[in-house]
Simulated scan of single mutants.
Amino acid sequence: MTQEQYILAAQPNPLHQRAASVCGAQVYPAVGIYGWRKRCLYFFILLLLVTMIVNLALTIWILKVMNFTPDGMGNLRVTKEGVRLEGVSEFLLPLYVKEIQSRRDSPLILQSDRNVTVNARNDQGQLTGQLTVGSDMVEAQCQRFEVRSTDGETVLFSADEEEISIGTEKLRVTGNEGVVFSHSVETSHVRAEPFQDLKLESPTRTLTLEAPRGVEVNAGVGDFTASCRKDLILQSSEGEIFLDANTIRLGNIPLGSAVDPLEGAPPGTTYTKQTVFELCACANGKLYLSPAEKGSTCQTTSNFCLWS
Results as ranks from 00 to 15, higher is better:
Gln3Phe: 03
Gln3Thr: 11
Tyr6Leu: 13
Ala9Val: 05
Ala10Gly: 05
Gln11Ser: 14
Asn13Ile: 07
His16Thr: 15
Ser21Ala: 14
Cys23Thr: 11
Ala25Thr: 07
Gln26Asp: 15
Pro29Leu: 02
Ala30Gln: 13
Val31His: 05
Trp36Gln: 12
Lys38Cys: 01
Phe43Glu: 08
Leu49Val: 04
Leu49Asp: 06
Thr51Asp: 07
Thr51Leu: 11
Met52Ile: 12
Thr59Arg: 08
Thr59His: 14
Lys64Phe: 14
Met66Pro: 00
Asn67Cys: 06
Thr69Lys: 14
Pro70Leu: 08
Asn75Cys: 05
Lys80Asn: 13
Gly82Gln: 02
Gly82Pro: 03
Val83Asp: 00
Gly87Val: 10
Ser89Lys: 00
Glu90Gly: 02
Leu93Gln: 10
Leu93Asn: 08
Pro94Ser: 02
Pro94Asn: 00
Tyr96Val: 06
Tyr96Trp: 04
Lys98Thr: 06
Glu99Leu: 10
Ile100Met: 08
Ile100Phe: 12
Ile100Tyr: 04
Gln101Trp: 05
Asp105Phe: 03
Pro107Glu: 10
Leu108Glu: 05
Leu110Asn: 03
Asn115Ile: 09
Asn115Cys: 03
Asn115Asp: 14
Asn122Arg: 06
Leu127Ile: 02
Gln130Phe: 02
Leu131His: 02
Thr132Val: 08
Ser135Ala: 14
Asp136Ile: 04
Met137Phe: 02
Ala140Ser: 13
Gln141Gly: 11
Gln141Asp: 13
Cys142His: 06
Arg144Trp: 03
Arg148Asn: 12
Gly152Pro: 06
Glu153Met: 11
Thr154Leu: 10
Thr154Cys: 05
Leu156Thr: 06
Phe157Ala: 12
Ser158Arg: 12
Ala159Ile: 02
Glu161Met: 09
Ser165Thr: 12
Ile166Val: 15
Glu169Ser: 15
Glu169Cys: 03
Thr174Met: 13
Gly175Cys: 01
Glu177Tyr: 04
Val179Thr: 14
Val180Lys: 15
His183Asp: 15
His183Ile: 02
Val185Leu: 10
Thr187Leu: 10
His189Ile: 11
Ala192Trp: 05
Glu193Phe: 11
Gln196Arg: 12
Lys199Arg: 15
Leu200Asp: 12
Ser202Gly: 09
Pro203Trp: 07
Thr204Phe: 05
Arg205Ala: 08
Thr208Ala: 13
Leu209Asn: 04
Leu209Ile: 10
Pro212Asp: 09
Arg213Cys: 01
Gly214Asp: 03
Val215Pro: 00
Val217Leu: 12
Val217Met: 13
Gly222Trp: 00
Thr225Asn: 12
Thr225Ser: 09
Ser227Phe: 02
Arg229Gln: 15
Ile233Pro: 03
Gly239Phe: 02
Phe242Met: 09
Ile248Gln: 10
Ile248Lys: 07
Leu250Ser: 08
Gly251Arg: 06
Gly251Lys: 06
Ile253Arg: 01
Leu255Ser: 01
Asp260Trp: 00
Asp260Leu: 15
Gly264Trp: 11
Gly268Leu: 07
Thr269Lys: 14
Thr270Leu: 12
Tyr271Ala: 13
Thr272Lys: 09
Val276Met: 03
Cys280Ala: 06
Cys280Trp: 00
Cys280Arg: 00
Cys282Ile: 00
Gly285Lys: 01
Leu287Gln: 03
Leu289Ala: 01
Ser290Tyr: 04
Pro291Gln: 05
Glu293Ile: 03
Lys294Tyr: 07
Cys298Arg: 00
Gln299Ile: 04
Thr301Tyr: 09
Ser302Arg: 04
Ser302Asp: 05
Cys305Arg: 05
Cys305Leu: 02
Ser308Ile: 04
